[in-house]
Amino acid sequence: MIGNTISSRLAALVREAALRAGASAPQLFSALELGADQLGDDLVRVPTGSAWRLWELIYAAAGPTGGLCAAATATRGSLSVWDYLFSSGPTLAESLRSVVELRAVVADPLGGGQVLESGGLLVVRDTATVEPGPILGLVEEFTLAVMLQRAREATGHPLVPVRVAFRHRAPRNHRHLVEAFGTNRICFEAPHSELTFLDAAALPTGGDPNLGRIHRGYAELLLASARPVPSPIGRIREVLLEAMAGGELELDQVAARLAISPRTLQRRLQELGTSWRAEVDMVRHEHASDLLRGTDLPMYAIAARLGYTDPRSLRRAFRRRAGQSPDEFRRWAATGSISG
């Protein structure tokens, strides 16, 4: 299930915006706890709450203009295939229907949207239900600014909405929004956030219909194959296992892999109700169990892989945790019996 998650591409974009706004590396790690490899994976989904914490960092650093600052970093392609859905149909209206239908490729699937046509008006509406507040304001402004930017790129037309609506309250000064959207007709505390265009529905996008079908198919495949990221402690354990395989199971080495300081890592583990030593012991034990179950490696080789100085250290640690020796565990795993 990918409800209450967003794509790693969107998370990476918001993280970059927070970094540019002045957030520190420890703050970013505390909010997101993802490696660069995960942020580049189209199949990885990030908890929406983590992204919300990034937006809080942006608001703290940039204030009400933070949403538009983030939108300025959203170059075409940064949101993967979703960016190309804006030219997936022959006209802007048809393309926008694909954009909204497949919005979950980047956004939280629990949200929603609509594309409406009435006379000469074309309305793109966000129907997500979130309590209005300053952080929502940043998210709404970011979302609509990116939508406008992509619509302009797809049509090659300098589109200017005839109306822009937000659910959040009006800021003290919204000149930055007038400049960004090109119109004075900006409403606040509306039922939905939305962009309204006049005589724009039939604008051609110049998109190839066959390529559009491929993009839509890929977007659907991403949604079907997406997976949430591990829990915060799960991510740390993943890195511990990687470090162990590389023979770099020291606190400063693991912290470097997580792009934080050793002190920050220890503090984070304490917040999660555990400790560095407890997690090292846990990961060693789980990996030892896997090797004992799935291989015929001798004890000295398993000990070396786990970073123990000798097989005796492995045996002591394993018995302390499992209540039996590694040899007994291996026999039990093979036969279902400790005897023999």
Rank of each mutant, 00 (worst) to 15 (best):
I2L: 13
I2K: 05
S7H: 08
S8F: 08
S8H: 02
L13P: 13
R15S: 14
A18G: 08
A18R: 13
L19Q: 13
A21T: 02
L28Y: 03
A31I: 06
G40N: 11
D41W: 03
D42A: 12
V44P: 03
T48S: 14
G49N: 06
R53H: 04
L54D: 09
L54M: 13
Y59W: 08
A60V: 00
G63I: 00
P64D: 12
G67Y: 02
C69D: 15
A71F: 08
T73A: 15
A74F: 08
L85G: 07
L85E: 07
P90F: 06
L92N: 00
E101L: 10
R103E: 04
V106K: 04
D108M: 01
G112T: 02
Q114Y: 08
E117W: 03
L121W: 09
L122P: 03
V123L: 04
V123E: 08
V124R: 04
V124P: 00
R125K: 11
D126W: 09
T129P: 00
V130S: 10
P132K: 08
I135F: 09
I135D: 06
G137L: 10
L138R: 01
V139H: 02
V139W: 05
E140C: 09
E140V: 10
T143N: 06
T143P: 02
L144N: 07
A145K: 03
A145Y: 04
V146Q: 04
V146Y: 03
M147K: 03
Q149A: 10
R152P: 10
R152D: 12
E153T: 01
A154K: 00
P161G: 11
V164K: 05
A165Q: 10
A165K: 00
H168R: 07
A170V: 07
R172A: 04
N173S: 12
R175S: 10
N184P: 13
F188H: 10
S193A: 13
D199N: 14
A201G: 09
P204M: 12
P209K: 00
I214S: 02
I214V: 04
H215S: 05
L222M: 12
V229W: 07
V229F: 08
P230F: 15
I233S: 06
G234P: 05
I236D: 07
R237C: 08
M244F: 05
A245W: 00
G246M: 14
E248C: 15
A259W: 01
I260E: 09
R263P: 02
R263M: 14
Q266H: 01
R268L: 15
G273W: 13
G273I: 11
D281P: 06
D281M: 13
D281G: 13
M282N: 12
M282H: 12
R284D: 14
R284W: 01
E286D: 15
H287Y: 11
R293K: 05
D296A: 15
P298L: 11
S313C: 11
S313L: 05
R319Y: 15
R319S: 11
W332F: 15
S339M: 01
